[in-house]
Design a protein around this nucleic acid. Sequence first.
DNA 1: TTGTACGCGTTATCAG
DNA 2: CTGATAACGCGTACAA
Lengths: 366, 366
Amino acid sequence: VSRITIRDIARLSGFSKTTVSFAFNEPSRIGSQTRETILRIAEELGYIPDPAARNLSLKRRGTIGLLLPDVISDAFYNPYMAQIVRGIGEVCEREGHSLTLIPPIHASLMEGIRNAAVDGLITLGLEPGMEAVGFIQRRALPFVAIDGRSGGEFPVVGIDDCSAAAGIMEHVLDLGHVEIAIIGFGPEPLLSTGSHVTSERLKGYHAAIKAAGHEMSESIQYFTAKPSLDGGRAAARQILSETRRPTAVVAMSDIIAIGAMGFFQAHGISVPRDITVVGFDDIPETHLVRPGLTTVSQPGYEKGLVAADALVTMINGDQPEAHIVLVAQLSLRDSSGFSSRPLPAKRSVIGTRSELGAHSRQRRDV
Amino acid sequence: VSRITIRDIARLSGFSKTTVSFAFNEPSRIGSQTRETILRIAEELGYIPDPAARNLSLKRRGTIGLLLPDVISDAFYNPYMAQIVRGIGEVCEREGHSLTLIPPIHASLMEGIRNAAVDGLITLGLEPGMEAVGFIQRRALPFVAIDGRSGGEFPVVGIDDCSAAAGIMEHVLDLGHVEIAIIGFGPEPLLSTGSHVTSERLKGYHAAIKAAGHEMSESIQYFTAKPSLDGGRAAARQILSETRRPTAVVAMSDIIAIGAMGFFQAHGISVPRDITVVGFDDIPETHLVRPGLTTVSQPGYEKGLVAADALVTMINGDQPEAHIVLVAQLSLRDSSGFSSRPLPAKRSVIGTRSELGAHSRQRRDV
DNA sequence: TTGTACGCGTTATCAG
DNA sequence: CTGATAACGCGTACAA
């Protein structure tokens, strides 16, 4: 037995497809007698319109796509992803949409974009000039980039990664640390990656270091990790295997920082006494670990919410803001402490500090 | 400028829609000269077939639906959800599907099911007889229930919740606890909820208590919470406000247990010295908190993976196993300790224990 | 008030 | 062997 279609209802009721459709969608346009007959028959047969055909006709898909740079099973290792999804979800429910997670197929975003039956896309870290951008535009799909580089022909939602990174690095330097390990996103070597977020944060780290009067090349080591607990652990292992052991670890992701911190602690290295560890994101887990993780608090939930809002605006044919910068702030907890090594030469406050009102506001858990 | 359609290519090339389609999908059926002409024009105009129309034609949607009982912004408060999504994602990528998260619209699952343009559904906690089940079946959608009640006409993936719950309660009783708080899923009173998972776990808890020779009504208190850190905190607050303070808290969810544990600790109550806290799920966060959370380790990732596998089997027209029971085990960490109160009368081992080989296996973090 | 025709891409079926 | 016609699923502008 095949599915019941509108044709079946039309045939059995003796009316046309149009009339049957009106019975459901525009009752005022047909007679009440006609309508009752049609609804009765439809009910008897258990008729439900095919959503795919319905959406095609209505020129809407009823769903928003979230384009993932990683496979789902990796992306959701990072609790930060859940925050973004929660924010997008808020808008989805308000608008009656579902949320389609689109992983790369065959290690490429293209196939996913090509096949996405969605009203619009939210992307993570997309940059102007990337092949995927042109592809999305060729499909005439509205889209908003979270954490992308602004200046393209699409709205971008993010924070000031450079300032935020400078803020937390400044904090670490204030504590007297000189030998510092920076952990970015892998697997490629950190200084070679071109991702906007990575390069902005590096820029911020370096600005703070330079402002502190250090020779960067001397005391900074670079590592990369996958944004997961295991990735953080692996990075920590690598850090410990270096001949120069840093007194502070600055990670671009909380989940990496937490994984690294756990590895240090499991190997008898006390945080923050022996080593300072700070992260980025402010996922809920930063409150759960001991010591609490010092990090940059960036609003993942809001990022999702604002991006989805902007996307809905575009879907409705309106023009959203081109570049939405959300506020990040430094969240000081107990994973960062003073270095036992002597302080280097006196440093001056970095230039960007005055622009970071929020950064100077210190938060502590209750 | 409207989107380029297959008609445009047909018109400009002078061939029919069929021939254009063949140029892409069945090149062998047309002449190579014809094909080249068509491909060239299509490339020039940047033609990409509309996925929605394509999927309609192909009678496939290219996506799997995950029917959420809660709004997305609540569901992803619980890290356990991420585990399930990761498992489903694994299969999605293998099959080239995307994953559509379908939240309830207007507090009802129906609207979501009605509009879901998906190849099949994975549901969470769906029971035979529920209105939604009939609705899915009327849509002739293949679907698999995670954590549902078996015996319906659909495959169910889960664990033996009763035995698992009995196993952890037995552990708590073994430690000498008598005054016990059980936290289930809210907001309704725990004993009135009909969810399969809830009633099975309650059954298990009660079986263990009975086997221990206690009068249940005397020393057990029931609470509910939303599965989130805040939910756990709220439940803990409520527990502390009762005149009888329990020496052990048995939660049906890790995130609730972790929230409760944090609340206790923040109020000067030591875990496990003053109060034992155990959970259910074994989310990664159980390793992060101090003390580590004793819990039932159930394979969320596998649940998603196996459910998605079964669903794909159904989509392909084959028959999967009707009821897949995965293995759960007790994970003993440090949040459970001996009660300072005197042990009650001697107890015997509960009957189900022999069936729970895995339960007797003790795991500890490295 | 109701019916006809169209849009979207694919393909079974038919014509040359 | 090559290519075109028509049908699928639904909603709706337009005609009757």
